[in-house]
């Protein structure tokens, strides 16, 4: 499988980076192709520009900037997207939120279509139907209960808004660690082990399972 990891954390010594290393090593050992977009390392600019907003609906035909185009290419080749990030203020770090805004463009990630001439409103149709799996790996400062109460907007953005671009049949998996700041070394190591185990069960070794690369239900 082609796995695309999108990673957002500024500190290379962080637990978040350790999580990413485990994910990359695990998936590569299983024989999968792994591409990593490390948003902070490439100094990614997350703000939609004025010109991008003006040309938004024709940006794909006109050609987006080189960085966005390269990321679109990686997305088009991927069977799975894995987001690794810390949850801040119940959501994605700005750099990752902006990556969605600049990369998931109309005509590429989704299409706006009209249901015949009688239809008044344009509807959104998924275009990332090559994505079979979405995985979110994230850390929270709050407890599981507090995250539930506060709404977990980041998880919703990924498991609802991003998943909606992939069409039906895309599997979403969530690998959270709560109360990271007060967690012990044992708990952190336990989480890294869990990440490796879960990814191994979600992405079986290439070759051993002939159905792994089969197109998902509902894809053309």
């Amino acid at each position: 499988m082609n796995c695309l990891i999108v990673h957002a954390h500024p500190n290379p010594d962080s637990f978040n980076h350790a999580t990413r290393s485990v994910a990359v090593d695990t998936l590569r050992q299983l024989g999968h192709r792994v591409d990593v977009i490390d948003l902070y390392a490439i100094d990614y600019q997350p703000c939609l520009t004025e010109q991008e907003h003006v040309d938004y609906h024709s940006l794909v035909e006109q050609g987006p900037d080189d960085v966005v185009a390269a990321h679109m290419q990686l997305l088009a080749e991927a069977n799975a997207i894995i987001f690794i990030y810390p949850t801040w203020w119940s959501g994605l770090p700005a750099i990752l939120k902006g990556w969605l805004e600049r990369t998931m463009l109309p005509g590429f990630a989704f299409a706006l279509v009209s249901d015949g001439p009688a239809a008044k409103a344009l509807k959104v149709r998924p275009r990332l139907t090559n994505i079979n799996q979405i995985v979110g790996i994230t850390s929270y400062g709050s407890s599981r209960l507090d995250v539930r109460i506060l709404g977990d907007g980041g998880r919703r953005t990924i498991t609802r808004a991003v998943r909606a671009l992939c069409g039906t049949g895309t599997k979403c998996s969530w690998l959270p660690i709560y109360r990271l700041d007060s967690s012990s070394d044992d708990q952190r190591q336990g989480f890294l082990d869990t990440v490796a185990e879960r990814l191994t069960s979600l992405f079986p070794p290439t070759g051993t399972h002939p159905d792994v690369n089969r197109p998902k239900r509902g894809s053309a």
Binding site: P46, C47, L48, W89, G91, L92, P93, A94, I95, K97, G98, L100, E101, M104, G153, R156, T157, R160, A161
Partner: peptide
């Protein structure tokens, strides 16, 4: 994407 633009986030 159902939320605040990156700059505001």
């Amino acid at each position: 994407f159902s939320g605040h633009p990156a700059r505001l986030k």
